[in-house]
């Protein structure tokens, strides 16, 4: 789910919505250093929305407080949302154009279709 926070639709479409059909929670070693570092780069509201889209927002606050670094409980929940929850099958939806990008086998396909290409270059 970290990835959903750093990609967007071609022009403005951020954040992409997620329509999951199959979600898995993978066991990933907890590394608070990486989570804290990542939090400084991501758009938290987008993460919150993504977590809601896939139904794994439980325990996540709507807004992040400054003391998150000391709150290991919360860091673990963020760790879960960022690294453990994975959309295996589903779609990413651009909020602007409604364009859907399919996710299969955990791999999103961001390629555009032929008729879309000309509209977006330069």
């Amino acid at each position: 789910m970290l990835t959903s926070n750093i990609i967007k639709g071609v022009t403005k479409g951020f954040p992409l919505g997620i329509t999951p059909t199959k979600v898995e929670v993978k066991e990933v070693d907890f590394n608070p250093t990486f989570i804290v570092k990542t939090l400084t780069k991501i758009d938290y509201s987008a993460l919150y929305q993504a977590a809601n889209d896939v139904g794994h927002a439980e325990g996540l606050p709507e807004k992040l407080e400054d003391d998150v670094k000391e709150n290991e409980d919360l860091l673990k929940k963020l760790h879960n949302a960022l690294l453990q929850v994975e959309v295996i099958e589903g779609e990413l939806v651009c909020p602007e154009s409604g364009r859907k990008f399919p996710i299969s086998n955990g791999i999103p396909n961001m390629l555009l279709l032929e008729n879309e290409v000309e509209n977006v270059t330069q």
Partner: peptide, 24 residues
């Protein structure tokens, strides 16, 4: 190293607009 895997995407490396500005 599975814990270190974030994601792999099918995408065109020549198109940078799919990345949100500031992701570093």
């Amino acid at each position: 190293f599975e814990s270190r895997y974030i994601d792999v995407l099918v995408a065109d490396a020549s198109r940078h607009k799919m990345w949100r500005e500031g992701s570093q």
